[in-house]
């Protein structure tokens, strides 16, 4: 199975989580995008998710959406779907997805890093 790593701008997190719930495996997938802890070179904040996905992930993610059995906010999911972009650097206005088996390579393409770690606490 391929791996996809997605940088979600902080402002798109709620909509993107509804998209994940819509095309995911269950209702808990609306927790896909957590804290916006990652930063691009300009300092923009992103939540980043990385997961194994089915071979047809791109088709599924860009196809017409329908509500799953567990329900979702379809309008929010569709807004997020309209922001999907494949490959390249993270964008504060887009959900940028990078297909790569190596998460570190995907993070490098996205150009996002974690700020220096907490002190040893």
């Amino acid at each position: 199975m391929p791996r996809v790593t997605i940088a979600c701008p902080a402002a798109l997190r709620a909509d993107a989580n509804q998209l994940a719930r819509c095309i995911g495996l269950g209702p808990d997938d609306d927790q896909t995008y957590g804290a916006a802890a990652w930063r691009d070179a300009a300092g923009n904040a992103y939540a980043v998710a990385s997961a194994l996905v089915g071979e047809g992930f791109v088709s599924v993610a860009t196809a017409s959406l329908g509500a799953p059995a567990w329900g979702c906010d379809l309008a929010a999911a569709r807004r997020a779907q309209g922001c999907i972009r494949l490959g390249g650097a993270a964008d504060p206005t887009a959900l940028v997805a990078v297909l790569s088996d190596a998460p570190d390579a995907a993070l490098a393409e996205l150009g996002v890093t974690l700020p220096p770690g907490d002190a040893d606490l």
Binding site: G26, D29, A51, L52
Partner: peptide, 8 residues
């Protein structure tokens, strides 16, 4: 519980 956050 969240699919994308599971180890492999």
């Amino acid at each position: 519980a969240t699919a994308s956050r599971r180890p492999v």
